[in-house]
């Protein structure tokens, strides 16, 4: 698994989300707000985000870790840490 910097992790999230919800504007989202609320994602979108992350990095995010990824900042930190 390639180590992701925080910047890489953000780009990865943006890339995966662009396929799931083409209209989302990551730049307009508050980094510490609830990701699903900020971006208008439902639970299917969130699961698809986890699948996309898995496809791109090989990383499987267990459901019990979902709370750690509930904000953009949290998700970036999580990905950077787990791929390090």
């Amino acid at each position: 698994m390639t180590a992701l910097t925080e910047s890489d992790a953000r780009d990865l999230i943006a890339k995966v989300l662009a396929d799931i919800a083409p209209e989302v504007d990551l730049d307009g989202a508050r980094p510490d707000g609830q990701l699903q609320e900020e971006l208008g994602l439902d639970s299917m979108d969130f699961l698809n985000l986890m699948i996309g992350i898995h496809d791109e990095t090989g990383l499987t995010v267990p459901e019990r870790d979902y709370p750690a990824l509930s904000t953009l900042d949290g998700a970036i930190a999580y990905l950077a840490e787990r791929t390090a």
Partner: peptide
């Protein structure tokens, strides 16, 4: 559902809905 989803690949997870 938690137990089931733990044991399977991410693409096979089932949502509570």
């Amino acid at each position: 559902l938690r137990t089931r989803n733990e044991a399977c690949p991410v693409v096979e997870r089932v949502l509570p809905a």
